[in-house]
Design a protein around this nucleic acid. Structure first.
Lengths: 198, 198
DNA sequence: GTAGTACTTAGATATATATCTAATTATACA
DNA sequence: TGTATAATTAGATATATATCTAAGTACTAC
């Protein structure tokens, strides 16, 4: 549900400590310990807030030895801000209506094309249904995380053997972008959404 | 403190019920009862959320007989979204530093130019100090409320007898805007801020 | 392997807040 | 003035969450 994502975005920013963290990170990447120092907080507290920011895809992390460095994920921050305004202004009526009717299509695709163990029986041929299935899978990836091609393949294989086709579809419909063998989720605002396809 | 305003903006939007309210209001104004119906909530709950949205200046209210109509305050919503991104991206370092040093100037102006009863002894001649005094006064106005000229005059007279000069300064430094005798606060982002004046 | 460092998880506590019902206030109108 | 309608306030409750300490995990380096 689109609305929840926007709520989570705002929840992530609705805390002075997290805003201060982002402010510090806007000057460059920092590791957890440094953040705890600068913010006068315990390390677990930093972990707690970092998790929230990561869930909302507002920061990225990179591990070097046993130190984790955090940095901003500016595209996602902007994309969410934009999506929030879009939600309030651009859409309006349709939005509310959209949910129940289209919901049923989504549910029928999920129950018809996915087995009980969560695997995709076959790739839907119909465009709209294919998008629903792809989105369902892609949402299981972590936003902000950089995946190698092997990791993406292994991930997709959990759902379907033809990982090459699905990986290509991910790129084609802008669920992910690829840069020299590295894969990363796009912000949901960039995805080709089945519920806008007429 | 700038940071708190941003936090409050995001807190206001960090709740699904309030987002749904804004969504409904994006299609036009509604009264409390109608909102309660559409959202399947009790009226006190609507009052509760409306208060939060009003505090963050995201909605405006208008009373007709004993019915209160709510509508969006789009400029403020956009201004806050913008300010939030500015905070994270544009500024960075200075922001944190800015606070303590400049704080003392603000405090000295407040204690030197304002009497214990809260009235302004005299309008500061120095530009920066004048802005501090004006901002202090203007912050006592409700965001999103439309004031008549008489109301503004009466309001200013609580602080200083020369209401005409101060009213003119409010407009000049973009604290407020005027449209055929109606006055309304501008979003803080539009104010000429003393702490950015070099 | 053992020790050290950085981070995460678990569990406790205090505060905040979303929601409701019941009581109160404000306004209109007969 | 009395009654009806809409809104607000008060008070109760349940849930969420920010923070801490203590214990556990992951990785490095010797």
């Amino acid at each position: 549900m689109q609305l929840d994502k926007i709520v989570n975005y705002h929840k992530a920013l609705a805390d002075p400590t997290r805003l201060r963290m982002l402010l510090l990170l806007s000057q460059g990447e920092l590791h957890g310990h440094a953040l705890a120092d600068k913010l006068n907080l315990s390390q677990p507290t930093v972990t707690h807030h970092a998790a929230k920011l990561r869930e909302a895809a507002l920061i990225k992390e990179r591990r070097d030895k046993n130190t984790v460095y955090f940095k901003l994920n500016p595209e996602f921050i902007r994309a969410n801000a934009e999506a929030s305004l879009q939600l309030i202004f651009a859409k309006g009526a349709e939005n509310m209506e959209n949910e129940s009717p289209e919901h049923s299509l989504k549910e029928s695709v999920l129950s018809n094309f996915f087995a009980k163990d969560g695997r995709l029986r076959q790739i839907p041929a119909q465009y709209k249904k294919k998008l629903i299935a792809l989105q369902y899978i892609v949402e299981k990836l972590e936003p902000g995380v950089v995946y190698s091609e092997k990791e993406i393949n292994d991930f997709i294989k959990r759902f379907h053997d033809d990982f090459a086709t699905i990986r290509r579809e991910f790129i084609m419909h802008q669920f992910m972008y690829r840069e020299n063998g590295q894969y990363e989720l796009n912000p949901p605002e960039m995805w080709t959404r089945w519920d806008y396809v007429k």
